[in-house]
Design a binder for these strands. Structure first.
Lengths: 346, 346
DNA sequence: TTGAAAGCGGTACCAA
DNA sequence: TTGGTACCGCTTTCAA
């Protein structure tokens, strides 16, 4: 009974228990676990003891003793957005093989929540930390600076990153979409975005829209801002309705996200409007729905998984440098490619 | 310069540094941090020292010393599925106010990956652990049993849970959908699901379909299984195509998920078929797309966020019981409600 | 190749 | 209300 612990809840085995059973010292057990050189016969005896007891080493004790945890902290605005969950998967894929464990936090687009989460994660002495975006509270910056932990900012291309950045310019990406639409011959183009000031990337896209419309000498005032972040499918319908009510002669709508673009298209269907013949609609992000719905949605494709992957690689490089005593000067600003994906809706 | 650490990277301040600066002992600092009773003037002095140094307590040291971490482990099959990310958000919402930190893992639907992740999370001595589903490897069960950590299994209603379970019977939910379709007058009903044996909940839905079709004396052989988990929108098109090619007189298709239902509807549109007049299509899960697309998708609504919330509450109850020395006999098997949501597509 | 001792940074416990 | 001391479970360091 006590062997499988089904009845009596004994305290879990310690390294010293394993050592005693194997007839060696704690240190030898520690070496076996760390993969250091140990005589093959000894190693086998120890491994057997580990298996027999079902020993699981205590990570907190190890971290305290060695002075290094195996945590990497990641903060995203919303886990519900497939874009960010893809980034998390990319990070996980690159870091897990190195024995690193993600500490994932969801800021819900709030900078003060980000600050709270950073403080909370810092308590676990993460090896490095990945944030989304380049806007942070002053307190967050101070916390990060003092901690000395390498930082990567994702999904943006800030002029002056804290440490390193892996992302792209949402302003430029939006400008490119405007150019695409203008090339297609659309002139009266509207923008559909969120009402919140919290989604900086959404605001940057709006900024890019305005700038490029102005540059092309087109009307840059057809803007509908509706709904809180994260923008979902349900925001698109009311938004396109408002756009068409206000400016009935609008030829194309550029949406801050594929989610709202999809909602907008569905609303158009309901109104008997054909997309893109009656009105063209473009999205952003290349979410799955944009490739599956009819008409397929013209969008800006972004490699969300790749952002995670490259962020992971950047963090690993920083760790390696630090290992070798080199002050981890991360390569600042890695650009991630994006492209306008011409499909049916615009 | 050293005050904000911008130039010299000094090792971060320790509790003893705070104590020295405030002119008190470490213990007093510890008490201030823990919110224990300390003279108001002393507390202020300590707090000032903390702020001045930017002190952040080391969680690993605290955990080691007190013998309890503030981690809760969660394992889901896929973070990319909004269903599971909603569950994670629910968990987070209920646990965060209690100072608990989630350790999130993505099993990618593989039981051996789950086993590896459980082992890895157990190293951090989590206060409790939430798993998805009720199928686990024998090694996973042994690990969990030996660890003594309270376990909650989510998204299923196992007959014999490890500890506690928060979910519902996917078999019964699927049966209910079949009944709904039969009541609507459909008789030649097909099932569209994934090819993989890994998604137990999907398999349970298939099982429920078969059982109820048989019970109603209807043909239960019209089954298309296509695509790996997680099932996405892109699986629905080929699947409905295969279904209609094999059994052209099919009147209704019941899909394992709203994702494939959506893909199927889009494919029908492309073929010039009207849903539900030419063919009815039902989904499962009440994903956002099912409420937004046209036609809106008849589905089984499940409170994914609520599963997370109730799981969190269950875990908190177990912790509280343990605190009071009561052996944490969790309430086994909490049922979460689901219901067939009649909409336009079926 | 292996072992003994010291100590990582906190908290529990008891004494003042 | 506060402080001293032991110690949590592991790794580092040094010696055998």
């Amino acid at each position: 009974m006590s062997a499988n612990g089904s009845d009596i809840v004994t305290s879990p085995p310690r390294m010293s228990d394993v050592a005693r059973l194997a007839g060696v010292s704690k240190m030898t057990v520690s070496r076996v676990l760390a993969g250091h050189s140990v005589a093959i016969t000894t190693r086998e005896r120890v491994q057997q003891a580990i298996d027999q007891l079902g020993y699981v080493a205590d990570a907190a004790a190890g971290a305290l003793s060695s002075g290094r945890s195996e945590f990497v902290a990641v903060l995203v605005p919303s886990l519900a957005s497939s874009n960010f969950s893809d980034t998390v998967r990319g990070l996980s894929a690159s870091l897990e093989p190195h024995g690193l464990q993600l500490l994932i936090g969801d800021t819900d687009y709030h900078l003060d929540r980000e600050e709270r989460l950073v403080r909370s994660m810092l308590r676990h002495q993460p090896r490095c930390i990945a944030l989304t975006g380049s806007r942070h509270t002053e307190a967050t910056r101070t916390l990060l600076r003092r901690s000395g932990v390498p930082v990567v900012e994702m999904w943006d291309a800030p002029a002056d990153p804290i440490d390193a950045a892996v992302g792209f310019s949402n302003v430029n990406a939006a400008r490119e979409m405007v150019r695409y639409l203008a090339d297609k011959g659309y002139e009266r183009i509207g923008f559909i975005g969120g009402a919140s000031e919290l989604d900086r990337r959404g605001l940057d896209r709006l900024k890019g829209f305005r700038a490029q419309m102005k540059a092309l000498d087109l009307d840059d005032t057809r803007i509908i801002r509706l709904g809180e972040s994260p923008i979902t499918m349900s925001h698109g319908g009311p938004a396109i309705a408002a756009l068409l009510d206000t400016w009935p002669d609008t030829q194309a709508a550029m949406c801050v996200s594929d989610m709202s673009a999809f909602g907008a298209i569905m609303e158009c269907h309901r109104r008997g409007l054909t997309v893109p013949d009656d009105i063209a609609i473009a999205g952003f992000g290349n979410f799955e729905v944009s490739a599956c719905c009819t008409p397929t949605i013209t969008t800006v494709s972004v490699d969300a998984y790749g952002i995670g992957l490259r962020t992971g690689e950047t963090l690993l490089a920083a760790l390696e440098a630090r290992e070798q005593g080199i002050e981890p000067k991360l390569n600042k600003r890695k650009r991630v490619a994006y492209e306008v994906l011409a499909r049916e809706s615009a």
